[in-house]
């Protein structure tokens, strides 16, 4: 059973994710319009849910996985709030 090999491969995946989060954060902070920022936060949080799952395997602590589900659900709620606000502002109440 050479689980060390697979664990080292998964370990070297972490810097790729960190680079991706840095790029998402740049777009979320400097986004020219409001939907750009919300879209960047949306994508970043969904990828963060995947990254949290991988980290909870690498930390050997399975109880940390419950954050991923809650994060995915509530970021969708943020998305719907902003969409509803944008639509009701121009189209009338």
């Amino acid at each position: 059973m050479n689980s060390e090999l697979y664990l080292s491969v998964v370990f070297w995946v972490i810097p790729i994710y960190l680079t991706a989060f840095a790029l998402y954060s740049v777009r979320a902070v400097k986004g020219p319009t409001i939907p750009d920022s919300v879209l960047a936060i949306d994508s970043m949080s969904y990828d963060l849910a995947a990254f949290i799952t991988i980290l909870s395997i690498l930390f050997h602590s399975p109880i940390l996985i419950a954050v991923a589900m809650v994060l995915a659900l509530w970021v969708f709620a943020l998305d719907i709030y902003v969409a509803k606000y944008l639509e009701s502002r121009e189209m009338g109440e």
């Binding site: 879209l39 998305d79 944008l86």
Partner: peptide
């Protein structure tokens, strides 16, 4: 994910954001 992206695209097209 697709539902949220679609809602955001529809809102930002119709409100010209």
């Amino acid at each position: 994910g697709p539902v949220g992206s679609h809602a955001l695209a529809r809102a930002s097209y119709r409100s010209k954001a």
